[in-house]
Design a protein around this nucleic acid. Structure first.
Length: 371
RNA sequence: GGACGGGUGGGUGAGUGGCUAAAACCAGCAGACUGUAAAUCUGCCGCUCCUUGCGGGCUACGGAGGUUCGAAUCCUCCCCCGUCCA
């Protein structure tokens, strides 16, 4: 019995406090999952991530299959061993690359033909192939292959992608049942349906019929307004079984995270904290700080006076600005540490608030500070 | 003393009669980033005025004159810098 999901408490809003047990440890939800596409969170060591309290990392099927190759990783003992990460890992299927590498691929019912962004070579990703790769990588949670499309998209295009996603989910499930090990890996299905409520509903019901042990909501936060993201999330979340984890893929901004939690979302991932860190955009308890701004040039204060992270305890804004504007490596490292700490700390606050029944208070507090 | 080569906006550096307030890059300033083709991308970057417009005025390619309808670009003299010859 490698997996178990329990909902420990709920908030009147719909927010849930939960616990997802995996072979590599327990994930307390709602959880934020840093993105480590190429088996590394850019700018952070595994030790640093552990110390920060990262519970689970994301990695990517498409990228790892191109380089260094999933068979190589399997040969080295699997992804955990390869990257020396003892805690849970989730691998994304490559469905997002259908969206983000849209110029380099061709989708058919059979699967997706990619031209590698690295060397132009051709690669074919089918539901079965995605499963084969994800099984080889050995992450605790693996995602079905889906077709993520841009927003807004017409109803007919959305319908087609959503139908294909269900078909692929079924094929993934069948392949996993034949070749996978249910005690080692948990397969999540992904709901699509764009910004069309009726399609979202339809798609969620179809996925639920396939009886996955966890569900993701994909294809959101790809350009549509936040209100629509929430609307679609609510439509889907409310139809998913209450006893299964719910993962909203690819979100979100700090000021949006709690909105999703209140819609019953248990897991989220986003490149924002790590990418923004590399670009000098730092999240603080009082909003964003663009550390390269001239106003910080001789500011001796810590980045965030209310932050307990190692960076805020030790360095000044003036120093962080200096590191950033001189292009020093350390800028990325320190900024990444701080931004991840910010997200993880916010998630801790959210979990505590659900536990102690004061989520509304935290909500108005965050709203006042972050927006 | 002589012979060449050169002096361009904060820097490097294109431009050899009009399309040039002047390429490009850097620096500077500001913004964006949502399942990572991102240590990336975008905008601004002489001064000034307004009705903010592919708007007006002023200043600008070492200096001063000149040629021309028009000059960073051509001519004259001068001042600097580099290389070489005495």
């Amino acid at each position: 019995m490698g997996f178990q999901f329990e909902v420990l408490a709920t908030d009147p809003s719909g927010a849930r406090l939960g616990r997802l047990t995996t072979p590599h440890g327990v994930i307390e939800t709602p959880a934020f999952m840093p993105v480590g596409t190429a088996a590394t969170v850019k700018g952070a060591t595994q030790q640093d991530l552990e110390d920060l309290g990262v519970q689970i990392l994301l990695a990517n099927t498409y990228h790892l299959c191109l380089r260094p190759g999933h068979t190589l990783i399997r040969g080295l003992g699997g992804l955990h061993e390869f990257m020396s990460w003892p805690r849970p890992i989730l691998t994304d299927s490559g469905g997002f690359q259908v969206f983000s590498l849209s110029d380099l691929r061709k989708v058919s019912d059979d699967g997706v033909r990619f031209r590698s962004h690295l060397d132009g070579s051709e690669h074919f990703l089918s539901p079965e192939k995605a499963m084969e790769i994800e099984i080889a990588l050995g992450a605790d949670i693996i995602m079905a292959l889906d077709e993520c499309i841009e927003a807004p998209a017409s109803e007919s295009i959305t319908r087609e992608a959503a139908a294909r996603t269900v078909d692929w989910a079924l094929r993934c499930r069948d392949y996993f049942e034949r070749h996978g090990q249910a005690e080692r890996q948990l397969l999540f299905g992904i709901v699509q349906g764009g910004t069309h409520g009726s399609l979202r509903r339809e798609n969620a019901d179809a996925l639920v019929d396939l009886n996955f042990l966890g569900y993701a909501i994909g294809g959101l936060a790809v350009g549509e307004p936040h209100s629509i993201t929430c609307e679609m999330t609510e439509v889907v979340s409310s139809r998913l079984p209450a006893d299964r984890p719910r993962y909203l893929m690819g979100v979100g901004k700090p000021e949006q995270i709690l909105d999703y939690v209140r819609l019953g979302i248990d897991m989220m991932d986003c490149v924002l904290p790590t990418r923004s860190a590399r670009h000098g955009c730092l999240f603080t308890s009082k909003g964003r700080v663009l550390i390269r701004n001239a106003r910080y040039a001789s500011d001796p204060r810590p980045l965030d006076e209310d932050c307990a992270c190692a960076v805020c305890r030790r360095y000044s804004r003036a120093y962080l600005r200096h590191l950033y504007s001189t292009g020093e490596f350390l800028a990325t490292i320190l900024n990444t540490h701080h931004n991840l700490h910010f997200y993880l700390d916010m998630m801790r606050q959210i979990r505590d608030a659900i536990c102690f029944g004061n989520l509304e208070r935290l909500r108005s507090d965050l709203q006042a500070r972050l927006t």
